[in-house]
């Protein structure tokens, strides 16, 4: 598979240790204010769940899944919020923060003067983004169980799926970051991210869209992520979810490979 074919060439003995030292830097940098910011990151999907899932859900009532099951609107929206928060958590760390460290603080120029290589920085940053994101996801799944939006067993099964989603978006985010020219490009990223958030089968099933739009939506990564997690938390997973997993793994491998290569070209000129 793509992943197993590409990674051995990128990684050498000691890579894991060196990536871990990049992750460790971020843990050292944690200061009291960031803990609050992190708590906020967890709060965000929960607020959306209550506002849209419960508040707007009261206006909507039940909704029919593509497979035919009829579920409460909150049951439909909750896994989408989880996927979206795994995405935005991974992206905020790997776009805004990563870009700042690379271009603005020139942090990586210092790191690259050590034995650490570009792809190891990428992996270390990704691991960090995931540590953060996974805490959010686990907490959100617990809330879903508490609100009766999924069963404990399904929540357990959904957790690895959210990790995969986070890793895939993290790798994508870093690859995108290496192509940015300046802070003004973040306006474009924000709009793109928001468009994904609104139209990835998150708030209404993609089947509601006109055919062409629906195809377009179904190739975007967040649609795949929502489809995967919703399949698991509603207990309707099937062959479609296998496609989602392969799609996200490919995204992860491609993102990492592109990031490593582009960082090397930009920082090791």
């Amino acid at each position: 598979m793509v992943l197993t074919a590409m990674l051995p060439r990128l990684l050498t003995p000691g890579s894991a240790r060196r990536s871990a030292s990049v992750t460790a830097r971020n843990i050292t940098a944690l200061k009291p204010a960031y803990w609050l910011v992190m708590l906020g990151g967890f709060l965000e999907p929960v607020l959306y769940l209550f506002s849209i899932g419960v508040g707007v859900g009261a206006l909507i009532g039940d909704i029919t899944l593509p497979g035919g099951q009829v579920v409460d609107y909150a049951v439909f929206v909750a896994p989408a919020m989880l996927a979206a928060s795994a995405m935005s958590g991974a992206l905020s760390e790997t776009t805004f923060n990563f870009f700042g460290k690379m271009k603005y603080w020139r942090l990586y120029e210092g790191v690259l003067a050590t034995p650490v290589r570009p792809v190891e920085i990428a992996m270390g940053e990704l691991t960090w983004a995931m540590m953060r994101g996974n805490v959010y996801s686990a907490a959100f799944l617990a809330i879903m169980v508490a609100m009766g939006l999924t069963t404990p067993l399904r929540a357990l099964a959904a957790f690895p799926a959210t990790i995969l989603v986070g890793f895939a978006f993290g790798a994508l985010g870093m690859a995108v970051s290496t192509t940015l020219r300046g802070w003004q490009d973040f306006d474009v990223i924000n709009v793109g991210q928001f468009a994904l958030f609104l139209f990835s089968g998150t708030f209404v099933p993609a089947t509601a869209y006109p055919v062409v739009l629906r195809w377009l939506v179904e190739v975007t990564p967040l649609y795949r992520a929502v489809d995967l997690i919703r399949g698991v938390t509603t207990g309707t997973a099937g062959a479609g979810q296998a496609v989602d997993v392969v799609y996200l793994l490919a995204l992860l491998a491609a993102g990492l490979a592109i990031t490593g290569r582009r960082m090397e070209r930009q920082l090791c000129r």
């Binding site: 060196r18 030292s21 830097r25 940098a29 210092g110 034995p115």
Partner: peptide
Amino acid sequence: DPELTVRENLTTYARFFG
């Protein structure tokens, strides 16, 4: 590293060397 203290700048950097 602007997010770290003076000492942390040295210790985290040392970790990059293992």
